[in-house]
Amino acid sequence: MTTDPYDVTPPPSLGTVVETERGSLPFALIHGEALVACASWALGEAGVTPFDLGTTWAGLVDSGEPVVLHDALCPMTPAAFLAECVVASEERSAVVIGVRPVTDTVKQVEDGYVGSTIDRDALVVVTSPIVLPPEVVEALDGLPSYDFAELAAALAARFPVVTVEAPPESRRVGSLDDVRLLEAQTRPV
């Protein structure tokens, strides 16, 4: 008998799907549904209580609960992975950030010239979610950015951060072509 590594029950937490500053792409369709809707359903299935970005930061602080930020551009992130990240944040009292390995070749640029290849084993792509433990929520006055890569860097500069490798279907889309590729990758068999 195998155990599902994502079969966990998260503590009470609040969450939102971040669609701000992402243009119209969150409203593109994947499997016949808007990306933002798919991401919202995953949050609900993970047992996270939704809030919208109009909620005051003081209200989030007063809740004393972790805050889960789920990127609308990572619409197929499994609910179980979101729940696992909330549990990891609670257990480690750290910000938890979902990441994917870098698969592209990355080159260093020096004085306008392409230089050596950077070892991609040391690189990750920020995906979703970003989970803020209650003590981090309390220490912030709000989000310093809605861009997940910028947000991850800002949080890492101030707080303990743990990265967790997200499953392949959690990849972030950046174009309609990416949406079609993700749709093909996540088509039920």
Rank of each mutant, 00 (worst) to 15 (best):
A154I: 12
G98W: 05
A94D: 06
C85E: 03
C85S: 08
G98M: 05
L143S: 02
L176Q: 05
P75S: 10
V99D: 09
A154T: 13
D147A: 11
G174D: 02
E45R: 07
V161Q: 14
T49N: 04
F51T: 14
L182S: 09
L176V: 04
S175E: 07
P12W: 05
G174T: 01
P101A: 07
G23L: 05
P78Y: 01
D147F: 10
G64L: 01
T2L: 13
S63Y: 08
D178K: 03
V162R: 09
V36A: 13
V173N: 05
V87L: 07
G115A: 15
F51W: 12
D104T: 04
V67G: 01
D111M: 13
A94G: 12
C74G: 03
Q108K: 15
A42R: 01
L123Q: 09
H70Q: 03
I30A: 11
L82S: 05
V125N: 15
V18R: 00
H70R: 00
E169R: 02
I118P: 10
L140C: 08
A34E: 13
T55E: 15
V164E: 12
T117F: 11
K107L: 14
R171A: 03
G59S: 15
V48C: 06
D119L: 06
L155D: 03
T186C: 07
L43Y: 04
V102C: 04
D62Y: 11
V106W: 06
V137K: 00
Y146H: 08
P78W: 01
A152N: 07
E45G: 07
L181R: 14
P50D: 05
L140Y: 05
S93Y: 04
P101I: 07
T2C: 13
E183T: 11
V126I: 12
S63M: 10
C38G: 10
D7K: 09
A37D: 14
L176N: 05
V102K: 02
L182G: 08
A42C: 05
D52W: 13
D104Q: 04
V114D: 15
E165S: 12
L14Y: 02
V131Q: 02
L35F: 10
L140T: 06
S145I: 07
P26A: 03
T105P: 02
E91W: 11
C85G: 05
E91C: 11
R158I: 11
S175R: 07
V136L: 03
V179C: 08
L73N: 02
Y113D: 15
L53F: 15
E90Q: 15
D7Y: 08
S145M: 09
D71H: 03
P75W: 06
D111W: 14
D119Q: 06
E84Y: 05
P11D: 13
L176E: 09
V124E: 10
G64I: 00
V125Y: 14
G47E: 07
S13C: 08
L155I: 06
S13A: 10
I30K: 13
V164C: 08
E65G: 02
V131H: 01
P50F: 10
H31F: 08
G98E: 04
G32R: 09
G142N: 14
E138D: 12
V106N: 08
R22D: 00
E91D: 15
A139S: 14
P10G: 11
A80G: 06
W57S: 05
S145N: 09
R158K: 14
A39M: 04
T117N: 14
L35M: 09
A46V: 02
K107E: 12
P168R: 07
